[in-house]
Design a protein around this nucleic acid. Structure first.
Lengths: 197, 197
DNA sequence: CGCTGTATTGATGCAAGTCAAGGTAAGTGG
DNA sequence: CCACTTACCTTGACTTGCATCAATACAGCG
């Protein structure tokens, strides 16, 4: 699957597999905006103008609506509208987390944060063993780095015994406390008493 | 106005004035997520966990709902739900534009892009005269730079005759073509023919 | 076996950060 | 009115984290 700008004015839902949503500049610099997972929507839901690229990471199966059909569905079903609203709000929160990462974190913190977010998300048999959905060179485009820097950051994580790599896109977290330390911390951990003036 | 984490589980609507929505790391590094303008919503709409800071830039008047009251409103009024959905989708698009800027643009491109976005938005008497809603040091926290870098970028824009500064937070765009050139361009300008495999 | 695509590692350069010292303009109050 | 403060901006010297460029390694596979 490779789509430019969600052609045909259709709305898609990811049913199985993973994909990435990205945008890029004229000279080829690319920024991945989101890793799309099952239940995620893709398409021109809001503005008529903004277009993104969707690229499959694995085999993907999707459901698909024409724009008018989708709008009719929303008109008929408040239930559906609420679900879409909540998933959009979740996407917005995820995007904002990424804004902080891209704008203010160092390379080390970026990778550590990403790995922790991934671990939080994926509840697997062995929780410290995670399958990376992306290659290192794709990770670079998600974290706003080069693939060389990603490789070097993985190397230092390995050297410090924080993670272990088992083949490509397969890593194991050995020392999660150090990883948390290296991540620069969550924004919400320093929550202070509510104030309003 | 200064709020930490939208206390009281309330939802607010900006009616007049401007504010910023931001988040920050434990050590003080800060990322501005959005400049809030009239009609923007603030509050814990989606997740129960994520908290942001809202800070007024000017005098601000807001409308306010308790969380249950707001949820009741959404249940009763599909009209309202649709409006909220659309504004959330718009916020998501804005956030994604900022993701590209933070992850992949240079300092020059960041400032140029910001000024162009500002000009696009604000339809004023003299279109090339714009009031910056933020001080330079706040701009730094929006664009993922330091205030020194912002100042230097303004200096080079001035030196090249692209903009002129009339007092703080008041600038005039003299050469919009060069500014567009310096902005690195829009992601959508290189749109290719739609493909889907 | 030799591609092709991904990852590693080293050498070097530079954009932006850091540190530091003013500058300017708008208050404030003696 | 003028010292003094406060808040924002500017500029310079220096440092550094990450990018860039380049070479090599490695694994899967047709």
């Amino acid at each position: 699957m490779q789509m430019r700008g969600h052609s045909h004015h259709r709305v898609h839902v990811i049913l199985q597999g993973a994909a990435i949503l990205s945008t890029s500049l004229a000279d080829g610099r690319k920024q991945i905006l989101r890793v799309l997972m099952p239940t995620d929507f893709v398409g021109r839901l809001g503005s008529e103008t903004t277009q993104y690229d969707a690229t499959a990471l694995t085999d993907v199966t999707t459901g698909s609506f024409s724009r008018p059909a989708f709008e009719a569905l929303l008109r008929i079903s408040p239930e559906m509208t609420h679900r879409l609203l909540h998933s959009t709000l979740k996407e917005l929160d995820d995007a904002r987390e990424l804004l902080l990462l891209l704008g203010r974190k160092t390379a080390t913190e970026k990778l550590a944060s990403f790995l922790l977010a991934l671990q939080r998300r994926s509840q697997r048999l062995r929780p410290n063993r995670i399958r990376l959905p992306l290659y290192q060179f794709e990770l670079a485009d998600l974290l706003g780095l080069t693939h060389e820097t990603i490789s070097r950051q993985f190397a230092t994580l390995r050297d410090h015994g924080v993670v272990e790599c088992h083949g490509p896109r397969q890593i194991e977290i050995l020392d999660i406390d150090t990883l948390v330390e290296m991540s620069g911390g969550d924004p919400n951990e320093h929550a202070v008493s509510p104030v309003m003036q």
